[in-house]
Amino acid sequence: MTQNPSALDPKKSFQGLILTLQTFWARQGAVVLQPYDMEVGAGTFHPATTLRSLGKKPWKAAYVQPSRRPKDGRYGENPNRLQHYYQFQVILKPSPDNLQDLYLQSLAAIGVDSALHDIRFVEDDWESPTLGAWGLGWECWCDGMEVSQFTYFQQVAGVECSPVSGELTYGLERLAMYVQGVENVYDLNFNGLEGDARISYGDVFLQAEQEYSRHNFEAADVKKLFGDFDRAEAECKALLAFGERGDEKHLMVLPAYDQCVKASHAFNLLDARGVISVTERQSYILRVRELAKACGAAWMKTDGAGLNG
């Protein structure tokens, strides 16, 4: 097979864009991880962010995270809103002084020319009520399109961040639409090839978007989901209790945290199905938050948080 440079070009292929970002952040000293193998609403839920942002230990990581937003399903008919999309997540602890510059350099690396485009930092204080987390920052706009979220974490899982981490979340499809100059996400060139060899984003994901939109809004089994939520909640608590050894090191945070993630996803699906009333909504969010907080507190009693230096 002959080599095709377009396959890696961030301006010509979706995968090239991902690889370029990975390379960029690897050069900045980040560990490049792979996606977390669970259904999550955002890269923030990856334990490499939620849990690793807690405690004093410095940490730099970058990874792609498939993100599921059941409510954002549009049956494949919206040009830039998907119920399953890719986030590129960067977490740097402590936040470096030149984080904005690094972010802009990374955009330049994937071909966003700041002499041609209007890049803006627009106030958007990030808050995840389910994670018991908040931070201050911006939505980053490119020609009016929100392409990233930029946050200085102040609190995560109910724990004050000390030191503060900087989090960058790139919306990969939207960025790719920019650099490739396409109007519709499904027209993105995925592999950078042309002619018969060309694979578009639609080739890979359109059917999935249609089927999952149907699933999220019409078919997801509500009764089962309520059950999933309750079971995940119970298991999270049980696992935390299992790993708890008083003041000593906690022995089972990560598996417990997985259950918290599960409960959160069940809640998102129920929400998309429109079966959670406004009042109940609050109480579900609180229940997930309690789990997240308990996991955060447990994490603080582990080496990962720098318990023993």
Partner: peptide, 18 residues
């Protein structure tokens, strides 16, 4: 907000953004 390495110290400077 707090930011950067100083955010781990006591009473760091707070500003609306760094």
């Amino acid at each position: 907000m707090r930011w950067g390495a100083a955010s781990a110290e006591v009473n760091p400077l707070r500003w609306v953004r760094p």
